[in-house]
Write a protein that binds this DNA or RNA. Structure first.
Lengths: 193, 193, 193, 193
DNA sequence: AATGAATGAGAATTCATTCAT
DNA sequence: CATGAATGAATTCTCATTCAT
């Protein structure tokens, strides 16, 4: 039960990300999701055991993918400044590339139940840990001015994720330009010269 | 347990803020809200014409209050650095001191309909404008390094509002300490000395 | 209880007739009725003990008035033809003069409960009896072609009452003209010469 | 007690006609309708999008059927007298043979909303036109005494439809007998000889 | 895998009625 | 007489989920 062809399943996940972003998870309805995925309401249950399961897989896939990709990017890099720059670039870029999925992953935590909640929180912490590690190294090796590592990691993640809420492809800046500005703000501050 | 009118209305608003924060607006139900306000489900409609109306008044009151309060704080201040520091302090503090209302104001925009949406967006823009003005002055008078004022205003608001998502009264830092660290991060950056 | 000043009471009855005609009795709501009568919802209960009571008094007043007036009209008349003519004239005229009240009286019987229903039915029968008596006399004295008195009485009443559903004061015919045409139709038929 | 689709839909319509006639449309409730149709309340919405939709389909089906049937009856007939006789016979018969549906079609017009209202009114006018055509021909070819065709058509329809309000299958007359008496009343009048 | 009718447990909302003031 | 907040039961409608076909 609850396992269909991967193609159809991915279509459903993709459409679910869009739909959940439009309406929020609780206000999204499975018949509409099915319609967008080109099937009937009942057929969703051949691919997922419940609405909750769809939300969970969406968020779980996204978190796993983010961790995996960021690790690959960071692997060859040593300098904490460079590591931070690339991390910020990745975080912003990923939020722009998959705005539906990241929006849901950032915003629908509240709607995860029990174990699903714990699993995603755990992956989110693992992702944040990557930021914290960089900051700690910067602090140790390059004397970055950090009073509290966790606090700064959270602040950075939160701020950069916000980009997905207003970014438009036809806007004033490219992703790289936005990332660079955020990086500069975070590293040298408003008042440095 | 019976009561006059404006008092009861305010109780409902207060409880609605809590309830909406706990469950989100769409998942909150009016019978539960009524129970918490000490009345029966139907009685809510003596004070509000609909569930949507409750959300709107909540957000509208909050946005108006934020604008009003921030203006009062800024009035006697001239130095843009000091203005920014106090603005950040206010923004974070307000998101924590009235955490339910502000959380909702940030997160339930999507659930406002038509004209309600437009009205709140307009107030939110007016609030953001206060940030932009400060940044513009800092740029002009104190040579702050800002490539795009709107972008930075958004980034700051986003980052500070995020505090409400993890702040716990029994946590490591006071509101003032958190605000100071955010201010430092934004003004001098991670790497300044 | 349930007995206020006659003036206000009559205003309520008048407005109720209009409102019930617009929406039908079940879909009419007492707050709206109160509003139109210039008072608050709860105040209606100083004049009537229930919504049902309003409907009942409306119909009861109307039926009583119709019987009383028709009797007065018929009293001095002997000739059954003339009696029928004047009866039709009265029936149509009354339905046009008080279209709201008569509409309700004709159409809301279904919504009367128990004893109220029986009382109104009884008055309606008494009113119909006036028609039947005329027809019976016409049959006896003037050889009217009637196979079934009750059936014809019903048919006449029904047909004439229908006028109130389409009559407009600015229409093609006066009340008297309409009444005369109905009278002619009923007395001489379509094909007489 | 499970069932395919068009059958169930027709059961619902049939039961709705009965229920609406018993209580009127506004006082009828869908749970009761569902119960009578052998399903749960919510299941009605598989077949109809709303309560209003049920009323509309009921009236629309009925009006279409009436027009269609009356046309078939009239087709082979030439003589306007005969056409009128058969039309009256049909109109009364249909109001009795399908008493629930026709009663509703006469009485629940007020409860149709917007476009539904306009559509049914338009069909009702088309039906009435069939009466008017007959009367016009009678007037032209057989010198019927008609001062206003529309007025007489309305009067006839109103009168005949009224039969459904008092007819009882165990009553004194058959449908044919009632129809014949109405026809006689209308054609030769009370006083003709 | 897919369908689509059916379920059944809510949800928001309405409203006649009550009653303390 | 009038108010208006409160009641509480009823109503339409929604929707995740099930399941026979």
């Amino acid at each position: 039960m609850a396992n269909g062809s991967p193609a159809r399943k991915n279509i459903i996940l993709k459409e679910a990300a869009k739909l959940f972003r439009e309406n929020g998870y609780p206000s999204s309805n499975l018949r509409e999701l099915a319609r967008r995925a080109g099937i009937q309401g009942g057929s969703i249950y051949h691919h997922f055991s419940s609405k909750q399961e769809i939300l969970f897989q969406l968020m779980d896939n996204t978190m796993s993918d983010m961790i995996r990709r960021l690790k690959i990017i960071l692997e060859p890099l040593d300098c904490p400044t460079e590591r931070l720059r690339r991390t910020i670039r990745f975080h912003i870029g990923y939020h722009i590339a998959g705005p539906d999925e990241t929006y849901i992953t950032d915003d629908e935590l509240r709607n995860l139940e029990g174990d699903n909640y714990r699993q995603i929180i755990s992956k989110r912490d693992r992702y944040q840990q990557l930021f914290e590690d960089i900051i700690a190294t910067g602090q140790a090796e390059q004397n970055w001015q950090i009073s509290d590592i966790k606090l700064f990691a959270r602040a950075i993640i939160q701020m950069c994720a916000g980009v997905a809420r207003w970014y438009r492809p036809d806007g004033k800046f490219t992703i790289d330009q936005i990332a660079e500005q955020y990086f500069t703000l975070l590293t040298t501050g408003l008042m440095s010269r």
